[in-house]
């Protein structure tokens, strides 16, 4: 398969994730859609690494996975704190982060 196929697929996954971030209101689902966008970036990085024949892109993808894990941990911590304070789990009604 040509590398272009992988790049177009990653573009489509990225856009589906962006549409989810723009339209959904549940912060949990928004975090999931952010994961989709990061994974699309990972796919493009690995495809370019295959294109050049060097593993640097794969190391970059590994670091992106670490960043995604950090983002998930902090985001879920904020959502649990919102739930503890009996705030609505809805980004439209949560417009400030003052604790």
């Amino acid at each position: 398969m040509d590398i272009a196929w992988y790049l177009v697929l990653s573009a489509f996954i990225f856009c589906i994730g962006a549409a989810g971030v723009l339209t959904r209101r549940n912060p949990l689902v928004i975090l999931l859609c952010l994961e989709l966008m990061l994974n699309a970036g990972n796919l493009a990085l690995v495809a370019f690494s295959r294109m050049h024949g060097g593993e640097a892109g794969q190391v970059f993808a590994l670091i992106v996975m670490v960043i995604a894990a950090c983002e998930v941990v902090i985001g879920l911590g904020i959502i649990v704190a919102m739930h503890r304070n009996r705030l609505p789990i809805d980004v439209d009604e949560m417009s400030e982060l003052r604790g």
């Binding site: 040509d2 590398i3 177009v8 573009a11 294109m51």
Partner: peptide, 23 residues
């Protein structure tokens, strides 16, 4: 964004994009 990214990917000047990649 999807249309824009596809134009950027398919209209790129990188010739290696249309190959299976390096050996």
């Amino acid at each position: 964004i999807a249309i824009e990214l596809c134009i950027a990917m398919l209209g790129t000047g990188l010739e290696a994009v249309d190959s299976k990649g390096a050996d």
